[in-house]
Simulated assay, not measured.
Amino acid sequence: MASAFESSLSSSLSGRQTLSATAPSMADSLPSINFGFDELRDRMARFSARFDAFIEQGRKRVLEERNQFRMNVAELQEDQRMKKKDMEILQHKTNTHQQMISKEAAETREMQAAIASLTEQRDRNKSMRDSLQQQIAETQKEIEARLAAQRAHAQYIESQSRFNVPELDFWMQNLCLKIEGAGQTDRLRFVYTHVDEKDWDREAWFELSTSSRDYDVRHCRPKLEREKVDRVLERVNETRDLAVLLKGMRELFVEAMKS
Rank of each mutant, 00 (worst) to 15 (best):
M249W: 05
D201L: 12
H97K: 14
A2L: 12
Y192V: 06
M87G: 11
R46S: 15
F170K: 03
H194E: 12
V217P: 07
R151G: 06
K85Q: 09
A149L: 11
Y156Q: 13
E6A: 15
L242H: 09
T18N: 05
Q17Y: 12
R151T: 12
S7Y: 07
V244P: 01
E138H: 10
K60R: 15
A154V: 08
D186F: 05
F190S: 03
D169K: 01
E251Y: 06
N174C: 04
F206W: 01
E56W: 04
Q184W: 03
F69P: 00
E142T: 08
Q155V: 00
D196P: 04
K83V: 15
S127R: 05
N164P: 00
M249L: 12
N237V: 15
C220A: 14
I157G: 07
E39W: 05
G15L: 13
C220F: 05
F69I: 05
E75G: 01
K258I: 04
E39I: 02
E138A: 10
A106Y: 07
L245C: 09
V236M: 14
M249G: 11
A154R: 09
S211M: 08
L245Y: 08
L76R: 09
S209F: 03
G181E: 08
M128P: 03
W200L: 10
A204L: 04
E158Q: 04
A145Q: 12
F47E: 15
F37E: 09
P24I: 06
D130P: 02
Q121N: 14
K223N: 11
E180Q: 01
Q184M: 06
N72Y: 02
E75Q: 13
H219M: 07
K103A: 08
R16H: 10
M111D: 13
K83H: 15
R221D: 08
D52A: 09
M128S: 14
F170W: 09
Q121Y: 09
F163M: 02
M44T: 05
A149C: 03
I115T: 15
F163L: 02
S20M: 08
L233C: 08
R43N: 11
M128V: 11
D214F: 00
S20P: 01
S212P: 03
S25D: 15
F47P: 08
A114E: 14
N174G: 03
W205F: 14
R218I: 15
P166K: 05
A152F: 04
E56Q: 14
P222Q: 00
G36N: 06
L40Q: 13
K103L: 12
V191C: 05
D214V: 00
I157F: 06
S209I: 01
E88C: 02
E203I: 02
H153M: 10
R129V: 08
F51Y: 03
V191Y: 00
S25P: 00
F35K: 02
S3V: 11
A145S: 12
E234I: 00
E207R: 06
V254R: 11
K103F: 04
S159P: 02
F163A: 03
